[in-house]
């Protein structure tokens, strides 16, 4: 049942251009910070001569990207999630959920899961990185 609620939530996010636009903007922001991170890495590393000062590219780029990601998400997540229940209320669709054989917990957890999966799409790039061996920390 939770899966069904999550599925509905995802469907609903992608039913309007909004979902796609939000994902694209986030992707654009993270992508450009990633590129910037890689650029900076080479600049900084060519400046440091002693081997002790050198760090791996993943650590360096990761810091730039996720530093900014946590800040961006601070705004993006509330914007996406604040309408999940109040929006249903506003468009008078809450009775549809309440009269279906789903408990309140299932509705809330389902909606949460739906949003997690939606934002999880942003991390799909990791599959590529992982395949290329970029996630090796040693």
């Amino acid at each position: 049942m939770i899966i069904n609620v999550a599925r509905k939530e995802l469907q609903s996010l992608f039913a309007s251009p909004m979902g796609w636009i939000i994902l694209a903007l986030l992707m654009l922001a993270f992508g450009s910070f990633y590129l910037q991170g890689v650029n900076n890495y080479f600049e900084v590393m060519s400046g440091s001569i002693r081997p002790a000062e050198r760090v791996g590219v993943t650590i360096f780029v990761g810091q730039t990207v996720y530093g900014i990601a946590s800040f961006l998400m601070l705004f993006a997540v509330p914007l996406l999630s604040m309408g999940l229940i109040s929006g249903e209320r506003k468009s008078q669709t809450l009775p549809f959920l309440f009269s279906a054989p789903i408990s309140l917990t299932e509705i809330v957890v389902g909606k949460f899961l739906g949003l997690i999966i939606f934002l999880g799409i942003l991390t799909i790039g990791f599959i590529y990185e992982w395949r290329k061996g970029a996630l090796e920390w040693e």
């Binding site: 049942m1 509905k8 809450l94 279906a100 054989p101």
Partner: peptide, 25 residues
């Protein structure tokens, strides 16, 4: 149950909406 104010998700097509309703029930 059909309430007085129709609880329809207007962004869906008829097929999508009825599919959701069926799975929910």
């Amino acid at each position: 149950y059909l309430p007085e104010i129709r609880p329809l998700y207007k962004e869906f097509t008829v097929n999508e909406f009825l599919g959701i309703a069926a799975r929910f029930h």
